Amino acid sequence: MSLASPAQESRRKPSIEAIVALTRDSMGEVNRMILAMAGSNVALIPEIAEHLISSGGKRLRPMLTIASALACGYRGGDAHVKLAASVEFMHTATLLHDDVVDESDLRRGRKTARTIWGNQASVLVGDFLLGQAFKTMVEVGSLTALDILSRASAVIAEGEVWQLSASKKLTTTEADYLGVIEAKTAALFAAAAEVGPVIANAGPDLRAAMHAYGLNLGRAFQLADDVLDYRGSTAALGKNIGDDFREGKITLPVILAHARGSEAERRFWREALEENRNDDGALAEACRLLDRHGALEATVARARGFGDAAFRAASQLPRSEIREALLEVVEFSIDRIN
């Protein structure tokens, strides 16, 4: 089923309200566990963790773990809660590390931890959260789930290094960039969705389907974020508009506009991203060039393609309210662009 079909376009605006409602009870347990996992006799640890945990994120990744487990028939235990809390701690640790690497000042509309407590504290607390995540995974007792999430952690770290090496390099290809976002963003979405059927003892087909769902949802989600950085709002994005541009990040819209541009336009991109000539005037020019070459619309089209793949994968789940909610998450992730 295509995300761009007229039937879907005529529906109400997609949201995550359905998956929030259907996972509310379990997510309440997840949130209580997260607070407990963030506890420490070292006062700075819960202080920094609470700053980020309470900053209003959607908690989409742990919700995927809860929803995928329930959609595959998991009942009667707390393994899904423990794995969901672990997923959220993995994500939170990545955010703390990301903000240090990117020198970001805002996260979800609030000052980043590094601007308040410094880079060293942010990195070390991120490491603590990762440790707590793996400790909690072990408590579940599923070697398969532990393998999935530990592999994802390694892939995410690899993606971070890959992105750092590509920063400010306009020689980055579209294939390279898609590889970066698969590692840096989509890998955790895939793992979060795949561990659900594992603890539900579902068959290999559903496990493969949920992995594909999460992987393609993560790809689509990141490409939508790339577009929003140039034509969104601070409220919607949770950070300053144009932050990727100012940080010299080579995202897909830039790669496409650079490839399609004249030599003079390529020179502009080199000066802006490689030589840090990225003031508000340069950002306005960047937006003009992105529009001129259809780079944002092309990125949206690629996001929709990945969204279609995620939609098809989740459609293999047994029919249920949870399945419909997972399908709507795909639509929501891309509809944010509109």
Results as ranks from 00 to 15, higher is better:
Phe189Tyr: 12
Ala190Met: 07
Ala190Phe: 05
Ala190Ile: 01
Ala191Ser: 11
Ala192Thr: 03
Glu194Arg: 11
Glu194Tyr: 03
Val195Ile: 10
Gly196Val: 03
Gly196Ile: 03
Gly196Phe: 06
Pro197Thr: 11
Ile199Leu: 15
Ile199Met: 15
Ala200Pro: 11
Ala202His: 06
Ala202Thr: 09
Gly203Asn: 07
Gly203Met: 07
Gly203Phe: 09
Asp205Arg: 13
Asp205His: 13
Asp205Phe: 13
Arg207Pro: 05
Arg207Tyr: 05
Arg207Asp: 06
Ala208Leu: 13
Ala209Tyr: 09
Ala209Met: 08
Met210Ser: 02
Met210Leu: 05
His211Asp: 14
Ala212Cys: 15
Leu215Glu: 11
Asn216Glu: 02
Asn216Phe: 10
Gly218Ser: 04
Arg219Pro: 01
Arg219Lys: 09
Arg219Asn: 02
Phe221Met: 03
Phe221Asp: 01
Gln222Pro: 02
Leu223Met: 00
Ala224Cys: 00
Asp225Met: 02
Asp225Cys: 05
Asp225Lys: 14
Asp226His: 08
Leu228His: 14
Leu228Pro: 15
Leu228Glu: 08
Leu228Lys: 14
Leu228Thr: 12
Asp229Glu: 00
Arg231Glu: 03
Arg231Pro: 05
Gly232Phe: 06
Gly232His: 10
Ser233Val: 12
Ala236His: 10
Leu237Asp: 00
Lys239Asp: 06
Asn240Cys: 15
Ile241Thr: 06
Ile241Pro: 11
Ile241Gln: 05
Asp244Met: 04
Phe245Met: 00
Glu247His: 12
Glu247Asn: 07
Glu247Ser: 09
Glu247Leu: 10
Gly248Asp: 03
Gly248His: 14
Lys249Tyr: 11
Pro253Ile: 01
Ile255Glu: 00
Ile255Asn: 02
Leu256Arg: 10
Leu256Gln: 06
Leu256Cys: 08
Ala257Lys: 00
Ala257Gln: 00
His258Glu: 00
Ala259Thr: 07
Ala259Met: 09
Ala259Pro: 08
Arg260His: 12
Arg260Met: 07
Gly261Ser: 12
Ser262Ala: 09
Glu263Arg: 15
Ala264Trp: 08
Ala264Ser: 11
Arg266Lys: 15
Arg267Leu: 09
Phe268Gly: 10
Phe268Lys: 13
Arg270Asn: 15
Glu271Ser: 07
Ala272Leu: 13
Leu273Asp: 01
Glu274Thr: 05
Glu275Ser: 06
Glu275Arg: 10
Asn276Arg: 09
Asn276Met: 03
Asn278His: 14
Ala282Gly: 07
Leu283Asp: 09
Ala284Asn: 13
Ala284Met: 14
Ala286Met: 13
Ala286Arg: 07
Cys287Asp: 04
Arg288Gly: 14
Arg288Ile: 13
Leu289Val: 14
Leu289Asp: 07
Leu290Asp: 10
Asp291His: 05
Asp291Ser: 03
Asp291Ile: 00
Arg292Pro: 05
His293Trp: 11
Gly294Cys: 06
Ala295Pro: 04
Ala295Gly: 03
Glu297Leu: 07
Thr299Glu: 01
Val300Ala: 01
Ala301Met: 05
Ala301Pro: 11
Arg302Ser: 08
Arg302Val: 12
